[in-house]
Amino acid sequence: MSEPVQSSSRSPSGLRVTRAVLGLWTGGVLLFLYLPVLVLVVYSFNASRLNVVWEGFTFGWYREVWSNGPLWQAARNSLVVALVTTLVSVVLGTVGGWLLHRYRFRGGGAIETLAAIPMVMPEILMGISLLILFAAAGMELGFTTVIIGHVTFCFPFVLVAVRARLQGLDPALEEAALDLGATPIQAFWRVIVPNLQPAIVAGGLMAFTLSWDELIVTFFTTSAASATLPIRVFGMAKVGLNPMLNALSALFVTVTVAFVLFSAYLKRLARG
């Protein structure tokens, strides 16, 4: 009688210690991830034009960023491209991942291998070959062509994340839904998708991030009107980067982090 009581009182505290250690580790990793971000934020207040030497404090770069129309235009383009890319990638990747998991396709191995190729394909090859294709097809370069390029290298990330989540998912779930008279598509929408939600969030985040910061495929598929932020940033190489870009990056990060923290605060308010 005494043994189970002892062990059940021991293991939660053991779990708690493990959890504390894991929490510390996670904190350390977050520090590692945010270290360069802190540095770039500090340098956004640097009076020097060169983002290497510290010369003194200024708000000037924020003022300059504020009035730099083309830079904002590029940031807006990046956002549009990344959002649409994420949406299309999530749809393609989730449906594809589920179908490849659920059914045995003739040549399924070949399909999966093909879907993995964009991850390894050097960007320059993808960019140039897509441009040759678009030019041959007489397609005008612009948002459509950029987004096609981005989806091509982004959706495999969603697909892989979704497939990993599906592995070991109890097929009984879906079967139960089917037994209750749902069509396969209803079963997918009502049962599978909610179950996949964490993988969809993870895959979507990866797709957004990859799209947001991509340079080379974008370069070859864009027109002036759809040029994204990385295109402008890398183009500055000739004349040198300046802390204006730090300021812009800092703005993005602080706004997002503030949003993350603030939403937590709001939720707590609502609950308490």
Binding site: T26, L30, L33, Y34, L35, P36, V37, V39, L40, Y43, N51, V52, P198, V201, A202, L205, M206, F208, T209, W212, D213, L215, L229, P230, V233, F234, L241, L245, N246, L248, S249, A250, F252, V253, T256, V257, V260, S263, A264
Partner: peptide, 26 residues
């Protein structure tokens, strides 16, 4: 959970070049 995930990703919403120059500074 979702907020922590987002926190993991946010550093990468800065520009690659700027982030890398920050590493060079470090």
């Amino acid at each position: 959970r979702d907020r922590l995930l987002l926190l993991i990703m946010v550093p990468f919403w800065t520009s690659f070049l700027i982030r890398t120059y920050a590493w060079i500074t470090i």
